[in-house]
Computed example of a mutant assay.
Amino acid sequence: MTHIGGPTVLIEVAGWRILTDPTFDPPGRRYAFGWGTSSRKKTGPSLQPEEVGPVDVVLLSHEHHADNLDDRGRELLAQVPLVVTTRAGAERLGRAADGTRGLRPWDRTTLDAPARQPISVTATPCRHGPPLSRPIAGPVIGFALQWEGQEHGVLWITGDTVLFHGVREVPRRMTVDTVVLHLGAVRFPITGPLHYSLTADEAVELCTLVQPRTIIPVHYEGWSHFAQGREAVETAFAASPDHLGERLHWLPLRAVDKL
């Protein structure tokens, strides 16, 4: 895995090059998220699109927030053979029908290509905010990846979500070996203490249920709407009675542009 910044990770496995939530815009701009909310991008990507190389598949948790798909990320989509995203997102992207697959939670699709090992992708539930926020925050999904030869369990990318019954269902349905956690405890001044992504404490509670061998934090830095960064995550995990802090693995970021 290569962490490019925010939620953007390049996963190279079983002959595939899979990119999550492409964000490649430079820092400095403020983006509107709707209903009076906005955020300023503070950190640029560690790699430019041309440095990433060819991408076989984009796993796009949602396309309606710029911290998960920005302008340069949208340009990249035109060069990618397949995008897997939400049903609503697939319709809005307007790509060719065979180049986009829209999934609802617990739908499954298979990545299949000549001379490559098939990968099963299951859409996992997300709720991108407090109760009753879905009509405002919009649909989001995570992704659970399985392929032949996995030794200990699936690779799960949570997507932008808070802790709710939908994500608690994931460890009941599957064994997770590695979890890529979207964190940051997103908050906006207009909605006060309400948060729209996992807090550090919620992440600890979720990982206590999941019991993954490896925990990879992403999407906790680089934007003004993040209320918690690496220090808060490390503190919360260090206090876990299950010693979950020993399972944290911070993917290195190369030098990036910062404001």
Rank of each mutant, 00 (worst) to 15 (best):
R104I: 00
A32S: 12
E151D: 13
P49W: 02
T20C: 06
L103A: 07
D177T: 07
L82P: 15
T191K: 02
W35H: 13
Q79C: 04
V179L: 08
L251H: 05
Q228I: 03
A144I: 05
G192L: 13
A239S: 14
I136T: 02
L181M: 15
E246I: 01
A200C: 11
L206K: 08
G94V: 03
T85H: 06
R172H: 08
L183A: 09
V256M: 12
H249W: 13
V256S: 10
P139Y: 01
E202D: 15
P135T: 00
P114A: 15
F164V: 00
L194F: 09
K41W: 10
A137H: 01
E91L: 14
E51S: 14
P131Y: 09
E91F: 10
G159L: 07
T20A: 11
D242E: 13
H165D: 15
R230L: 12
R92A: 09
F164W: 10
L244V: 03
F226A: 06
L10A: 04
A144S: 14
H152I: 00
V179R: 03
K258F: 04
T191L: 08
Q228S: 11
L248W: 05
W106Q: 04
G99T: 11
A238W: 01
G192C: 05
T8M: 08
R74W: 07
I136Q: 06
T161F: 02
V256Y: 07
V83G: 11
T86M: 06
A115R: 15
V218F: 10
D160E: 08
L93D: 15
A255V: 09
E63N: 11
F33S: 06
G149P: 13
P171H: 08
A255E: 14
E205A: 09
L244A: 00
T122E: 14
V13W: 03
Q146R: 15
A232P: 02
H243E: 14
R172P: 05
V218Q: 03
S38Q: 08
G184Q: 09
D257K: 12
L194N: 06
L194A: 13
D177Y: 05
R230Q: 15
E50H: 12
E51N: 06
A115S: 11
V233W: 04
D160T: 15
G15I: 06
P45K: 02
D67Q: 09
F226T: 00
S240A: 10
H3Q: 03
E221A: 15
P131C: 04
R116M: 07
L132K: 00
R168F: 03
